[in-house]
């Protein structure tokens, strides 16, 4: 456990100093700050549009940070040979992979926390009468985006044990896009009784294999329009459980591959 924590801590320390990540974060923060002044806001529903826009900024920024941060984690360690001084200590490879992953998620969490803080501040300035309940409602979106990005980081981590960073960037980005935009489509196809068997099977397979990122966009009524939530808590626990299972599966895959990998 010590080794995992130490590796995670070092990974966070390094990640929050990476200029490329800080630039991405800065751009995201900049959009959050200037969002209220943008003309995209309609007079009719400026508040709703502002929420949607700023949450979109956090999601996109989070996704780019998650991918850029994670795709380089293990390849950099190999290239700089730091991995040799770590793996020749009494550190198992699975501890190394987990340490790196938790470090990435930790750094990602800090960056998303900063963006969420700024988002809430902007809203409090825009709506001085907004209560803590309203702010809490708004903050729930980024919390689920964080879970979504943790899955994305696990996807990138899994690819990073065998793919080069550039290939991994496009692979992870592709999985995120498909999982965000098309997962509900595949889910509908899988549930459609009128479709031919092979099409249904293919849709079910894709829906099962690909992570369903879309379900974490809890603020998006367009994507979740068909969903009637009986118990909110249960729904959130289900989302969390799905994430834990998916991340666990990906990390186990990453560990199994990395265990036999020549570094």
């Amino acid at each position: 456990m010590n080794a995992i924590l130490s590796i995670a801590k070092t990974t966070i320390g390094e990640a929050i100093r990476r200029k490329v990540l800080l630039i991405i974060l800065l751009i995201g923060v900049l959009f959050l700050v200037i969002a209220p002044g943008l003309n995209v806001l309609s007079a009719r529903s400026s508040f709703a549009v502002l929420i949607s826009f700023t949450l979109g900024v956090i999601q996109l920024t989070g996704a780019v940070i998650a991918i850029v941060l994670t795709v380089y984690l293990i390849p950099n360690e190999i290239e700089r040979r730091t991995i040799y001084t770590i793996l020749c200590k009494p550190v198992h490879r699975w501890q190394f992979v987990l340490g790196k992953y938790f470090g990435a998620v930790g750094a990602l969490g800090l960056m998303m926390l900063l963006m969420t803080g700024i988002l809430l501040l902007v809203f409090k300035i825009m709506q001085p009468t907004a209560t803590f309940d309203v702010l809490g409602e708004i903050a729930r979106g980024p919390v689920f985006f964080f879970i979504q990005m943790s899955i994305l980081a696990a996807v990138a981590m899994c690819f990073s044990v065998f793919a080069s960073p550039i290939v991994n960037f496009f692979l992870s980005g592709g999985v995120f896009m498909v999982g965000t935009l098309f997962s509900p489509v595949f889910q509908d196809l899988a549930n459609n009784q009128n479709l031919a068997g092979p099409v249904k099977m293919a849709a079910t397979a894709i829906h099962t294999i690909l992570p369903n990122f879309a379900q974490y966009n809890i603020q998006n009524p367009i994507i979740n329009q068909g969903v009637t939530i009986q118990s909110e808590q249960l729904y959130y626990v289900g989302l969390l459980g799905y994430a834990v299972m998916y991340i666990a599966g990906l990390l186990i895959g990453a560990i199994l591959i990395f265990d036999r990998r020549e570094v």
Partner: peptide, 9 residues
């Protein structure tokens, strides 16, 4: 182990 040209954080 001390690698050749070690790199540290």
């Amino acid at each position: 182990y001390l690698p050749e040209k070690p790199y540290y954080y």
